[in-house]
Design a binder for these strands. Structure first.
Length: 697
DNA sequence: ACGGATCATACA
DNA sequence: TTGTATGAT
């Protein structure tokens, strides 16, 4: 998560975009006659009308809530329209929503670094765009302010009784005596309003947004005025906002950690945290979490917006509640096959569209044992190298299950194979694919080279040195050759030639959006004049009094959580965001490579420092690939030093000042490493009980 | 023994 | 590296 005490003078412009009841909107776009009507999306219609997973704002007026059953919803709102989630292979199929989310992301990524935070949320770093606007076309001098921007909510802006709210907003934006931060936020208002209109125009979806100086505040703000509105958090209103904000409303504090703060420390609002010294918080919650909390209390949150448009893993799962628990191995096998089919399909799409390959297959199972003494035991997760091809994934997943089952049952749990009840039941199955890395673009020949030479693991192909050599001395392959050239590289996972049989190649190389699963995702221009956003001025204040007791009962038992920082590479992002061309969603990693030339022209001041920008970019490109392959984060700084071939400690400080600020920040971060080992825990302090009451110590 | 299906990330 | 746990939507 976070850490590192970031600069308290954080003048970034960060936006959090949140789609309004997204699944409902997707369904309403498919069935436009549902627009404006109370609607909910429901899955699994058979039991009590299914569970609601998204509710339109019209339906919310009637008291319909998420996590109601369909029948309950009908009771409070008889005229509600319930739309079922599509089902494929006996399970919910969310592909339509995923694809719709991608449409949105590809639009939002146009104006700055974009991080896909979930299927319907993104973070944007609009700092550069705002600074540019401020320099070239400052809002103060704008005669006309966009209507959508004027509808913004600005926290702390006092609207006197008779005053025209929009006029107040206009004045705030126009204010000439504003400090730099407020001026940047004013630019953010205009940019986000424009982006939201663009999203509406191109996708027919409305969204809400928060605009602030960091992710935490932007996220907080985006939920304050929904739907289809945006909220701004000026620096001057931060502390006032936090002082009365219930602790659980803060992201990451909605669970056990937040409950511990409340019960163990008497912290009810974020403001209450201010009483505690950083040391005190560290003492109780560890160095990283303690520092993070200390910062949060002050509205400080240095987490960077990651430039990531694609998910880092894919999963397919299903639950089998209560009576439907699976009790035979063959039933498990059947469902595993279904799940693996879906997963395989998605992996093929990812490979085809994004040129990425997953390397690890993981199986998660939830099970119960009826009689056994320790029915508390959990079914162990298992993972193995991922082999492409549906049949192989199915085979491997099943093997993982059997391995897990043996452990779970205990060394001797009757061998009731086949179809006899043996005391256990499976209540949840899921398969997932992770460690997804881009196919090294332009490294096909290098892949061959290392293929014979080393025992060839993919990661070795992607070490910075290798990539650098490649980028420097080799030319990119033809469009068609990458497949043959890359496949040998794939053989690195033990299996050899038969990895790609005919069967497997079926989905390749151009498995289009067939399957009928994905609705057509072609952006459609609005027919007619749908020009105005919905005017649902339902000014229901965010009630901060929800289900308070939910956790209190549960919280009697155990431990907490640790929040940590991770390394960031803003340098790469700096160059990325310098590239003005819109990010094609399907090629985000390609862009980092191909963008090299364009980036060369941007870096101006950099070259004079004795290192060609070409070198720098190659290194960064390599590291981008490496980072995506995860598990290298720890060594990143060391690698950087080696790659740059001089000691970071010897950098002349005066040189740093001339670099772009984003890079300055990064270098500062290197100079004073941010992540501290979290292992110092005092005995007898709250933390020990917080972390492991039930088990071994 | 229902909020279901996905995601991300930290820690041991 | 794998496996577990937490948290969010």
């Amino acid at each position: 998560m976070p850490v590192a005490k970031p600069e308290s003078c954080d003048s970034r412009v960060i936006a959090h975009i949140d789609m309004d009841c997204f699944y409902v909107q997707v369904e309403q776009r498919k069935q436009p006659q549902l627009r404006g009507l109370p609607t909910a999306v429901v899955q699994y219609n058979e039991w009590k009308g299914g569970a609601l997973i998204a509710v339109s704002y019209e339906a919310r007026k009637f008291g319909v809530k998420r996590s109601m059953r369909g029948e309950e919803a009908k009771e409070v709102c008889p005229q509600i329209h319930l739309v079922q989630v599509p089902v494929a292979r006996g399970k919910a199929d969310l592909n339509g929503y995923r694809n719709a989310g991608s449409e949105v992301v590809s639009i939002l990524a146009r104006r700055g670094r974009c991080e896909r935070a979930s299927i319907d949320e993104v973070y944007l770093d609009l700092t550069d765009a705002a600074e540019t606007m401020l320099a070239e076309a400052p809002p103060q001098h704008l005669e006309a302010i966009d209507e959508e921007a004027l509808k913004s909510h600005i926290l702390g802006l006092n609207n006197e009784d008779g005053s025209d709210v929009k006029e107040n907003v206009r004045n705030w934006i126009h204010r000439c005596n504003a400090d730099h931060r407020d001026k940047l936020l004013a630019c953010g208002i205009l940019i986000v309003a424009e982006l939201r209109m663009q999203v509406l125009k191109e996708t027919e979806f409305t969204c809400s947004a928060g605009i602030a100086h960091n992710k935490m505040l932007a996220k907080l703000a985006s939920g304050m005025n929904k739907p289809a509105q945006q909220t701004v958090v000026p620096f001057s209103s931060v502390q006032g906002l936090l002082n009365s904000l219930p602790i659980r409303k803060m992201k990451q504090l909605g669970g056990k950690l937040g409950m511990s703060l409340q019960i163990d420390m008497g912290v009810n609002t974020v403001g209450d945290l201010l009483q505690f010294s950083e040391e005190k918080l560290q003492e109780r919650y560890g160095l990283n979490t303690g520092t993070w909390l200390w910062n949060i209390a002050r509205g400080i949150n240095g987490e960077a917006v990651e430039g990531r448009l694609l998910p880092k893993s894919h999963g397919s799962g299903k639950t089998f509640p209560g009576p439907r628990a699976l009790k035979t191995v063959s039933a498990v096998q059947h469902w595993l096959n279904q799940l693996c089919e879906e997963l395989s399909e998605r992996l093929c799409s990812d490979l085809d569209q994004n040129k990425r390959i997953a390397h690890t297959l993981t199986l998660h199972v939830r099970a119960y044992k009826s009689s056994d003494s320790d029915s508390q035991k959990k079914f162990p997760s298992k993972s193995c190298p991922l082999r492409y091809g549906t049949a192989k994934i199915q085979e491997d997943a099943f093997n993982l299950f059997q391995a897990g089952l043996r452990e779970y049952i205990g060394l001797y749990g009757g061998k009731s194979e086949g179809s006899h009840y043996s005391g256990w039941g499976i209540t949840s199955l899921s398969v997932s694919a992770s460690k997804i890395v881009p196919i090294p673009s332009g490294t096909c020949s290098i892949a061959k080279y290392f293929h014979w030479q080393t025992s060839s693991h993919f990661s070795s192909i992607q070490s910075p040195e290798n990539l650098r050599m490649d980028a420097t001395h080799l030319s990119p392959p033809g469009e068609e050759s990458w497949i043959e050239d890359t496949i040998p590289g794939l053989g690195l996972q033990e299996q050899k030639i038969n990895v790609w049989k005919d069967e497997d190649l079926a989905c390749f190389p151009s498995k289009k959006k067939e399957d009928g699963l994905t609705e057509d995702t072609s952006p459609l221009l609005l027919s007619g004049t749908q020009g105005c956003l919905e005017q649902n001025q339902n000014k229901q204040q965010r009630e901060f009094s929800k289900d308070e007791s939910r956790f209190k009962s549960e919280y009697r038992e155990q431990k907490g959580t640790r929040l940590n920082n991770k390394g960031t590479s803003s340098i790469l992002k700096f160059f990325k965001s310098c590239n003005p061309s819109g990010a094609s969603l399907s090629q985000e990693h390609d862009k980092t490579v191909q963008g090299t030339d364009a980036q060369l022209t941007n870096g101006a001041g950099f070259q004079s420092r004795g290192h060609s920008l070409a070198e720098l970019n190659e290194v960064e490109v390599a590291e981008e690939n490496e980072r995506s392959s995860c598990s290298y984060i720890r060594d990143q700084d060391e690698r950087r030093r080696e790659a740059w071939s001089y000691n970071i400690d010897e950098i002349d400080p005066s040189v740093i000042d001339e670099l772009p600020t984003e890079i300055q920040d990064e270098i500062q971060a290197w100079l004073q490493p941010r992540k501290r080992p979290n292992n110092i825990v005092k005995r007898g302090s709250t933390i020990s009980h917080y972390f492991s009451p039930t088990k071994k110590s």
